[in-house]
Design a binder for these strands. Structure first.
Length: 759
RNA sequence: GCCGGGAUGGCGGAAUUGGUAGACGCAAGGGACUCAAAAUCCCUCGAUCGCAAGGUCAUGAGAGUUCGAUUCUCUCUCCCGGCACCA
């Protein structure tokens, strides 16, 4: 082949062909077995695609192309998680409406993704900001509302003073700053909409056992749900009808409970008959002004106040113990009250030492027996709290609720959906939703529902939109349902899901909640949406720091495609290392895989009349097995390496027989689809499905065996793979004669691997 | 503090899960081709001793189990992720 490898030309050519032939359209009716292979859909940011996106998308693309070659009917869709703050913040700065910015970014993303030759079914593209999508987000909200899975309550919530909105607990970092804006989160008492995710806490923790996910991701989710088992035990108050119910995981230490502590928020703090009212009220007020983070940041310096004149009775030994209020006890966990066992709990011990309370060493009891003896109940508690979904921002799906003149909330009936996001608003945040300024929204509400009716003006957390998009991909143009039962039956659950590990507790937990809730509403017949999950690791800059505009070390995938071609970029990102690992970018290495592709392009092929080269044939069969196994376990780095080894062998051999060449192109096709398509066309070979290996051709006629003497490698011998122990030992002893200085004490032969002699 | 996961040449990484450590690639050095350069091709490439054959050491540190340990066990150091006054 005299022509030079010109990726620009051949990539454009094949991308056009694929697009025109709708080469990757999933078949809704097919006899073939299905595979639903999904990427976490991106937020279409103005910065464009990131090399990290490319890594995950290439991995699933290789997997998808491989499964198609194996005869599967593959659903591999792409869409846009398009609502969100960056576009809105940009609108505040520039006045350009978010719709415009978002669509522009989407067009850019789509173009970038297509330039990589990723095999998505573009007929199924969805964007969460489109009315024909958010109509169903709203419909689902309304369904949940009717079934009691959505409720409104006044609560102390996280307020982001920069983005001017409330946030879910999951969006606040451990240091008390907002995940998105970095602002220090404040507490506000506001009336907000919540999804009752806690109804599913137990199942969300338990059914993780059913899925093939990274163990660490499962553990992180279980930690977030934070189930703990223990007892609820009543401590009656002396001379009164009251009793304090505590939650403890250690009922075995009940004899050591020397005082009881109520959280400042506990209802009994206002009703118990204690003497120091003023002092207690002042303390409670002070605690209320602190955020959870302040309460824990102050750490071990514990504060509290005793309820004077009130005593609780330890039900185990009938002892009267003091009752305190202290903010180290949290109102929203357990019963908001604890029995303090200073001898067995560090926190109680510090508190007892500070305030001079009794510390008593005791013998432990059996926890369940003790619980039963004192009439307690064995229960479970969760750290997980309900999911706050209201946002006081513009660029999101409007919450489909209207209020009647009495202020009662009603779900907007289906015939009025989509409940359109109004456009007659200013984007500047004022602490209440921009939708509140819309005349059109108010008029629309009164026109449809009547005078005095008012619209809800908050929008939904964007995580609501992304909690069900994988359902929509199965039936994206359905105007009657969020997806038909038949389509969901055909495609779901998702067989492989790939995305960043940063979504461990947010998106993945919410999507699982939606799945379980919709199952219980009768729409689905399965429990878990994502059967197999893998994460792609962060790609660092060439200087091993995080890529950031601030450091000026961001690698733009477009530049790389321009310089090296899409096939080289794809192959390089796969060759970098394990998918899940954090690894630095290296532009020299991408030049290396480009060299590999050039060598493939130049490979000499022809009809070879010699008898087949057995060694080469063996290597081809080994490579078929290796590449297939590696793709299935997403070890693309070692698959690429195996292909390189095969190419090296081909070059050494000389003119490559066409039948072996065709197999090689098939193996390379999922990784470098443009180059291989072009070479297949040029060479005039016809390719069938994914090649099969012949198990009888996997081992060569002779193998090298290591020989150790006293644990040290001394020689290698060449043997038949099925050599007997006697043959092997004979050959080994001969090879290491000079090391066998005394009587042989032991001989070990592991066929195919090693001979170990001890003297 | 608790729970996960890591640490292998100058660099990215490989090692069939206890069986020849460093595959594959990058970088580097030497050579061929060329007037020259690029591209391409060939050779070397963990450290150390040796002219060589070959020896010795070596997978974060230290111990242990084993004929044999990057892999298993224990202790420690550092890095990454999650949780953290959740009773």
């Amino acid at each position: 082949m005299a022509s030079t490898y010109d990726p620009k030309e051949i990539e454009a050519k094949w991308q056009k062909k694929w697009e025109e032939s709708r080469a990757f359209a999933a078949e809704d009716t097919s006899d073939k077995p299905k595979q639903y292979i999904l990427d976490m859909f991106p937020y279409p940011s103005g910065d464009g695609l990131h090399v990290g996106h490319v890594e995950g998308y290439t991995a699933t693309d290789i997997y998808s192309r491989y499964q198609r070659m194996r005869g599967f009917n593959v659903l591999h869709p792409m869409g846009w998680d398009a609502f969100g703050l960056p576009a809105e913040n940009y609108a505040i700065k520039t006045g350009v409406p978010p719709q415009e910015t978002t669509d522009k970014s989407i067009n850019n993303f789509r173009k970038q993704i297509k330039a990589l030759g990723l095999s998505y079914d573009w007929d199924r593209e969805v964007g969460t900001h489109n009315p024909d999508y958010y109509r169903w987000t709203q419909w689902l909200f309304a369904q949940f509302f009717e079934k009691g899975l959505v409720y409104k309550k006044k609560a102390l919530v996280n307020w982001d003073p920069v983005d001017q909105t409330v946030l879910a607990n999951e969006q606040v970092l451990p240091d008390g700053t907002a995940e998105r804006s970095g602002a220090k989160v404040e507490k506000r008492d506001l009336e907000q909409w919540f999804f009752k995710i806690t109804d599913y806490a137990d199942e969300l923790a338990d059914s993780l056992d059913k899925v093939d996910w990274p163990e660490s991701t499962k553990i992180n989710q279980r930690n977030w749900i934070g189930r703990s088992e223990g007892a609820q035990i009543k401590f009656p108050i002396s001379n009164s009808q009251f009793s304090i119910e505590v939650f403890t995981t250690r009922p075995d230490t009940l004899f050591g409970a020397t005082y009881v502590v109520l959280a400042p928020e506990h209802p009994l703090v206002t009703s118990l008959p204690y003497e120091n009212k003023a002092e207690v009220e002042a303390y409670v007020q002070e605690a209320k002004n602190k955020s959870d983070i302040d309460r824990s940041a102050e750490g071990k310096d514990k504060t509290g106040v005793e309820l004077k004149g009130v005593k609780a009775i330890n039900p185990a030994n009938k002892e009267e113990v003091p009752v305190w209020v202290a903010d180290y006890v949290l109102g929203h966990y357990g019963t908001g009250a604890i029995m303090a066992v200073p001898a067995h709990d560090e926190r109680d011990k510090e508190f007892a030492q500070k305030f001079g309370l009794a510390v008593r060493e005791i013998e432990l009891e059996d926890p369940k027996e003790m619980t039963a003896k004192v009439g307690g109940t064995w229960t479970k508690q969760y750290r997980l709290r309900d999911w706050l979904v209201s946002r006081q921002r513009y660029w999101g799906a409007p919450i489909p609720i209207v209020y009647d003149p009495e202020g009662k909330a009603h779900a907007i009936p289906e015939e009025h959906l989509p409940w359109m996001l109004p456009t007659d608003v200013e984007f500047k945040p004022t602490g209440t939703s921009p939708l509140g300024q819309s005349k059109e929204l108010l008029e629309r509400t009164e026109r449809i529902f009547g005078k005095g009716w008012k619209p809800e003006i908050d929008t939904m957390d964007t995580f609501v939109c992304s909690s069900w998009y994988f359902f929509r991909f199965t039936d994206p143009r359905n105007e009657k349902e969020f997806a038909s039962k038949a389509a969901m039956q055909q495609w779901l659950p998702v067989d492989l899901y790939v995305g960043g590990a940063e979504h461990t507790v947010l998106h993945l937990l919410y999507a699982r909640f939606f799945t379980k809730a919709l199952r219980d509403l009768g729409y689905l017949g399965f429990d878990e949406p994502f059967l197999k999950l893998r994460h792609q690791g962060t790609i660092l800059a060439e200087d091993s720091r995080k890529m950031s505009k601030r450091w000026g070390n961001v690698i733009n995938p477009d530049d790389m495609v321009e310089r090296f071609g899409a096939d080289a970029v794809r192959l390089y990102e796969m060759f970098m290392g394990p998918l899940e690992a954090m690894k630095p970018w290296n532009t020299n290495n991408i030049a290396g895989v480009r060299r590999f592709l050039e060598r493939v392009w130049r490979l000499e092929t022809g009809l070879v009349h010699d008898i087949p080269n057995i060694e080469l044939e063996t290597l081809v069969h080994q490579t078929i097995k290796k590449v297939g196994d590696d793709i299935e376990s997403l070890k693309m780095n070692t698959a690429v390496s195996a292909l390189m080894i095969l190419l090296n062998a081909f070059e050494k051999y000389g003119t490559v027989p066409l039948y072996l060449y065709g197999t090689f192109l098939q193996l390379l096709a999922p990784f470098a689809p443009h180059l291989t398509s072009e070479l297949v066309e040029k060479s005039g070979i016809t390719l069938a499905d994914w090649p099969q290996f012949d198990p009888s051709k996997l081992t060569s006629s002779s193998i090298k065996i290591a020989v150790q003497v006293n644990g040290k490698l001394r020689a290698t011998v060449t043997l038949a793979p099925d050599a007997s122990e006697d043959e092997a030992l004979l050959a080994a002893r001969e090879a290491v004669k000079k090391w066998l200085t005394g009587a042989e004490k032991k001989a070990v032969y592991i066929p195919g691997k090693i001979v170990s002699l001890v003297v």
